[in-house]
C-alpha cells in the first residue's frame, strides 16, 4: 500500500505551473522530495494537504481521496513547515491544551517528553523562541498524536548541523514502526542522504525522476574526461553532461559503460546538478 499516491497533478499560477506531477510514497518508507527553490515542492505539498485546490489529477493518502476524506486523513498525518505557524503569544503548554481538543489520540505525556528532550521551555512565549526551538516545537506538535504519515516541508532549512542531526534522529525513531511513512521535502540533500529510501526530483514543476536512492547511487556514475574520451561512451548511456573544471563531466548509466572507464559514485546533489545544469 502507498501512503501517498499522486497522479497527473496540475496546478498553475502566473508564471509557474505543476505539470502532470505523479509519484507515490510506499508505506514504511521515507521519500526525499528534492528540487531547487521555486521548483514546485511546496506547491505539491500544499496540494497534497488540500491547502491549494488542484486543477486536475488525483491525490490519495492511505488509498483515500484527500478532498473527499480530508478530516479522516488529517487525523493520521503530522505536518511540519519551514516555520511554526501558531500565534506568537502562545506557549508550549497552551498549545498542548489546544491540541488535546483537536486530536482524540493526543498524547500529552509524549509531547512533554519531547519538550524535555529538546529543552523547550513550557511557559515561554513562542515569539521568544530561537528558530531551532520553533522547529523542534513544531516537530513535537506534529508527532504527539502518533500520526502514520509525516509531511515535512523544508523542516531543517536554516538550522545548524547539530540541531538538524537531532531532528533527523527523531524522524529515524519515528520510522522504526514499519507502518509509518515520511514525505520529506528539502534542498539540503545531505539530510536526504541520511534518511531517505526514495528520491523524487522536481524541476520547473515537472517530476524528472522518482527512484530508489540505492538505485540512483549504484546504477548511475559520474564520468570525468575530455572530448575524445567521452565520445567512447555510448550515446544511450549518457543521461546528462556538462563542462567541468577539467574537461567534460557526464552522468552515465553505470551498466552501459565499459568497465575500463573509472566512474565516481554520485551523490544526490551531483545528480540534481546534472539534471538542472547539464544538457542531454
Amino acid at each position: 500500500m502507498n501512503a501517498i499516491e499522486i497522479h497527473d497533478l496540475r496546478k498553475s499560477f502566473t508564471g509557474f505551473s505543476l505539470n502532470d506531477v505523479s509519484f507515490s510514497v510506499p508505506q514504511g518508507t521515507v521519500m526525499g522530495f528534492v528540487g531547487e527553490n521555486g521548483a514546485g515542492k511546496s506547491t505539491t505539498i500544499k496540494c497534497i494537504l488540500n491547502l491549494l485546490k488542484k486543477e486536475y489529477g488525483e491525490i490519495l493518502l492511505f488509498g483515500k481521496d484527500i478532498v473527499e476524506h480530508e478530516l479522516a486523513i488529517k487525523n493520521d498525518i503530522g505536518v511540519v513547515f519551514d516555520d511554526l505557524h501558531v500565534p506568537e503569544t502562545l506557549n508550549a503548554t497552551q498549545l498542548d491544551k489546544f491540541m488535546k481538543k483537536v486530536f482524540k489520540t493526543w498524547d500529552s505525556n509524549y509531547y512533554f517528553e519531547r519538550l524535555a528532550q529538546f529543552k523547550i521551555p513550557q511557559r515561554k512565549k513562542v515569539k521568544e523562541f530561537s528558530r531551532g526551538m520553533r522547529m523542534k516545537l513544531s516537530i513535537a506538535l506534529a508527532l504527539s498524536h502518533h500520526p502514520k504519515l509525516l509531511i515535512l516541508d523544508e523542516p531543517t532549512s536554516g538550522l545548524d548541523p547539530i540541531i538538524r542531526d537531532e531532528i533527523l534522529d527523531l524522524f529515524l525513531t519515528f520510522m522504526q514502526d514499519e507502518t509509518h511513512s515520511i514525505l520529506f521535502s528539502s534542498h539540503i540533500t545531505s539530510d536526504l542522504e541520511k534518511i531517505a529510501d526514495y528520491i523524487t526530483f522536481i524541476h520547473n514543476g515537472e517530476i524528472l525522476f522518482s527512484e530508489d536512492k540505492d538505485v540512483l547511487h549504484y546504477e548511475y556514475g559520474i564520468f570525468k574526461g575530455n572530448k575524445e574520451e567521452i565520445s567512447a561512451i555510448p550515446e544511450h548511456a549518457i543521461i546528462r553532461k556538462r563542462n567541468g573544471a577539467f574537461g567534460i563531466e557526464a552522468l552515465v548509466l553505470k551498466n552501459e559503460v565499459n568497465e575500463v572507464f573509472s566512474l565516481e559514485k554520485p551523490s544526490i546533489e551531483d545528480i540534481m546538478l546534472f539534471y538542472v545544469k547539464g544538457s542531454v
Partner: peptide, 21 residues
C-alpha cells in the same frame, strides 16, 4: 485582534493541516 494574530503567524496554513473543518 485574534484574527490579526492568526494572520501574522499564517495560522490558517497550519490549522488547515489539522482535522478541523
Amino acid at each position: 485582534t485574534a484574527l490579526t494574530y492568526d494572520e501574522q503567524s499564517s495560522w490558517d496554513k497550519y490549522a488547515n493541516t489539522l482535522p478541523i473543518s
